[in-house]
């Protein structure tokens, strides 16, 4: 019924920083947001606080889907981790961008870049990033 799924896997950066990757696939809206919530919950339960959300196969995101990121990012950061977003399709990136997410999250072109950001300093406050398509509309 649902055309959305989250797969979670472990990843390691070059300097062996353990990171958890969530691969999103399909459409993330009010009906499927709970699946992503569950994935974040599981990360929290398993003490994975460095999370990369890979949106390579994410086709659509609604405001409810964006809300999930907001609901979990504070807790993750308080635990010393971060949620970084990578590999968004331009259309999906545009939705993140419209809402001002690049101000709040590191949004990278590739998973490797996101991994590299974790290496820089896990405690760094996220900075606005130069991400693709920022000026696609304006």
């Amino acid at each position: 019924m649902s055309n959305f799924s989250v797969h979670s896997r472990a990843a390691h950066s070059a300097h062996d920083v353990a990171v958890h990757v969530l691969d999103l696939e399909g459409e993330l809206d009010a009906h499927t947001a709970s699946d992503l919530e569950a994935a974040f919950e599981q990360c929290r339960a398993e003490d994975h606080h460095r999370i990369i959300v890979n949106g390579a196969d994410l086709d659509y995101i609604s405001s409810a889907g964006l809300g999930v990121f907001m609901a979990y990012v504070e807790d993750v950061r308080e635990a010393g981790g971060d949620i970084k977003i990578a590999n968004l399709k331009p259309k999906v990136y545009n939705v993140f961008d419209l809402l001002g997410f690049p101000m709040l999250f590191d949004i990278e072109d590739t998973e490797e870049e996101a991994l590299a950001r974790f290496e820089e300093n896990a405690e760094d406050a996220p900075e606005p990033s130069d991400a693709p398509g920022e000026n696609r509309i304006a």
Binding site: G100, M103, L104, I137
Partner: peptide
């Protein structure tokens, strides 16, 4: 054209 001044959603930050 679209008028798209910068600004993030209310209540986010």
């Amino acid at each position: 054209r679209l008028l798209r001044p910068d600004g993030m959603g209310l209540g986010l930050a």
